[in-house]
Amino acid sequence: MGADVPFRFVALGDSLTEGVGDPVGGAWRGWAALLAEGIAGDDAPVEFHNLAVSGALTVDVRERQLPAALALRPGLVSVVVGVNDTLRHTFDIHDVAARLDEVYAACAAQGAVLLTACLPDPGAMLGLPGALARPLARRQREVNAVVHALSERYDAVHLHAAEGDLAADRALWSADRLHPGERGHRLFAARCHGLLVARGLATGAAPACEPELPPPTRSASLWWLATAGTGWVVRRCTDLLPQLVALAADEVRHQVRGTSARLDHGSSRAVASALAALAT
C-alpha cells in the first residue's frame, strides 16, 4: 500500500454489512467500516466503499453489487450474504452456490483478496420453536458449508462466526435478534482484523472491542423493534411462512417416526450436489 495510492476495500452483502444495529450520526456504520479503519497505518490511505444493502440476496450481490465492486478494482472484497436467501420460499442451495461461486471467482480473477464469513442460523437467533427453527438451521448450515468450501477454493480469509460467542452471547446482538449491536459489530470487525493480520494483509490498529456509545435503553430497543425491527423481519419472511409451516410439519412427522436423520442426510446430499455441479 503506497502512501499515494489508496488501497480499496469494498464490502458486499446485506444488512449485516450495511451496519444495521450500529447507528452512528443518523446512519449505520457497522463492522466493515470499523475494519476499514484498521487495515493500514495512518500514513497509508484506505479507500472504503460499502455497497451492501439491507435485504440483499445472493442474486442481488451478483447482479447489482458485483459489477460496481469490480469497477472499483479493489484490493480486498468482503462478501457476507446468504441469510436472506434462507428466509425465502425460493431457497435452493444449488442457486446460492452458483451465485457465490461466480462472485468469488470474478473478484479473485481481478486479484482481490476475498473476506468471507459463515453466520448463525436465523431461527436460533429469533428464538423460534424447534420445529420451526430446525428447517432454517438446516438451510443456514447448507449456506455455511458452501461458503466454507468456496472460501477454501478461492483462498479467502474466512471468519467462523456461526458458533462461539459471536452467536451465543446475547449481549452482542441488537433488539431484533438478527443484527449485532455496536459491541457485536466491533467484535466481528476485530476478528476479521486478526485474520487479515495473520495473512499480512492489515497493518493498522485493531478495532476497539468496547463500544463508544452507551447501549440503547430497553424502552428504546423495544420501540425500535415495534416500529422498524418487526417490519424488517416480516418483510423478509412473509413469503416463507406457508412453506415454513409445511416444513415444520414435516419435521414433526419425521421426529415422531424417528427418521429425522433423513432430513439432515438429504441436506448434506444437496450441498454435495451443488458443489459438484460447480466443478463441471
Score class of each variant (00 low, 15 high):
residue 56 A to R: 00
residue 74 P to Y: 05
residue 74 P to N: 00
residue 29 R to D: 06
residue 84 N to E: 03
residue 51 L to K: 02
residue 60 D to E: 09
residue 68 A to Q: 15
residue 70 L to R: 07
residue 39 I to R: 06
residue 32 A to N: 03
residue 56 A to C: 12
residue 63 E to P: 10
residue 69 A to N: 03
residue 58 T to V: 13
residue 79 V to R: 05
residue 46 V to Q: 06
residue 30 G to E: 09
residue 44 A to K: 14
residue 76 L to K: 13
residue 46 V to D: 03
residue 35 L to H: 03
residue 32 A to I: 00
residue 64 R to W: 12
residue 29 R to C: 08
residue 59 V to D: 14
residue 68 A to R: 15
residue 55 G to D: 03
residue 36 A to C: 06
residue 31 W to C: 03
residue 40 A to N: 08
residue 69 A to G: 14
residue 28 W to A: 11
residue 73 R to V: 11
residue 47 E to G: 09
residue 39 I to P: 02
residue 72 L to T: 04
residue 71 A to I: 04
residue 80 V to C: 05
residue 47 E to H: 13
residue 47 E to F: 12
residue 43 D to I: 11
residue 83 V to R: 11
residue 74 P to D: 05
residue 56 A to V: 10
residue 62 R to C: 07
residue 66 L to W: 03
residue 33 A to S: 08
residue 80 V to R: 09
residue 47 E to Q: 14
residue 75 G to K: 06
residue 54 S to D: 10
residue 30 G to V: 00
residue 75 G to R: 11
residue 29 R to E: 10
residue 66 L to R: 08
residue 70 L to C: 13
residue 82 G to A: 12
residue 33 A to M: 03
residue 39 I to K: 05
residue 68 A to T: 13
residue 80 V to Q: 10
residue 28 W to H: 05
residue 47 E to V: 03
residue 80 V to P: 08
residue 37 E to I: 04
residue 35 L to N: 09
residue 52 A to E: 06
residue 42 D to G: 11
residue 60 D to N: 12
residue 59 V to W: 13
residue 30 G to F: 02
residue 70 L to Y: 05
residue 55 G to K: 04
residue 33 A to E: 04
residue 45 P to Q: 11
residue 63 E to T: 15
residue 77 V to P: 05
residue 79 V to Y: 07
residue 45 P to Y: 09
